[in-house]
Amino acid sequence: MTAIEISQLTKTFGTVRAVDGVSFTVEAGTITGFLGPNGAGKTTTLRCLLGLVAADSGTALINGQSYAHLGSPISAVGAVLEATSFHPGRTARNHLRVLCVSAGLPESRADEALEQVGLADAAGQRVGGFSLGMRQRLALAGALVGKPKVYILDEPSNGLDPAGIQWLRGFLRYLAEETGAAVLVSSHVLAEVQQTVDHVVIIAKGKLVHQGRLADLTVNGSTPVRVVAREADRLGPALERAGGKVDPAPAPENAAAESAAGVLTVRGMTPEAIGQVALDERVVLSELVRERSGLEQIFLELTA
């Protein structure tokens, strides 16, 4: 089931086109990473989706409805937008009570949500004294009070310590897998969501550059593979005939030694396919390895 559907969304602030004809969908029961560098238009897209910013054109629907037309929005969508949106003088429990009362939910949901995010002990403390990590958890608790089936989180790991990030990953997995919710989580760091997400939507300069399964992004062949062979001059053309895109490796500092060994960077082929070509050509390989920063590299290239 399609939980979120964004179609040809455009928003201009003054002369800056923040979002430019972006379209993508998010399915129930999956976690989708919404990626892009800072200023790519992620936050504006999410805020259009949530009815906080009026789009110039295009549609952004949740469960087939625009946000303003959802009957009880907080029970349909849980949003975590920024960690600073609390009144510092209000206690955590009172913050959530305000949400519950406005939404017509029982006030007991406030304490239940605090329990879920591990803030039960701090319920009576003023938010002004909270660490950034505690604020993120409180923001998440605010998204949970309505028990929605769609979650939209804007950079939720900002300010979390490694333990907090790990906890968040587990929690998002729980939401998607156990409750069947659709989760859209934005980040400007691929590595941060790499272990959590099933799908990725990548935008840059307001435009969509990629949507698909994370697995496809990894094995669609554009992950560069580093190949070292003494007879690189013979292997290179053979790999190109096999459909690979071969670059001599970027000149390293010890250029002389490396070129002697013959370092190639191959795109569009899996290590296995490269090995097969080397075997057919009877070329001895001394190194055959996926570039460790491959995914990050693709991300950088896509968003450059």
């Binding site: 959802l70 929005p73 949400l99 939404a103």
Partner: peptide, 12 residues
């Protein structure tokens, strides 16, 4: 304090 975000999310 940007709590207006919560307010409008609950009552669009």
């Amino acid at each position: 304090f940007q709590t207006i975000t919560h307010t409008f999310l609950i009552t669009p």
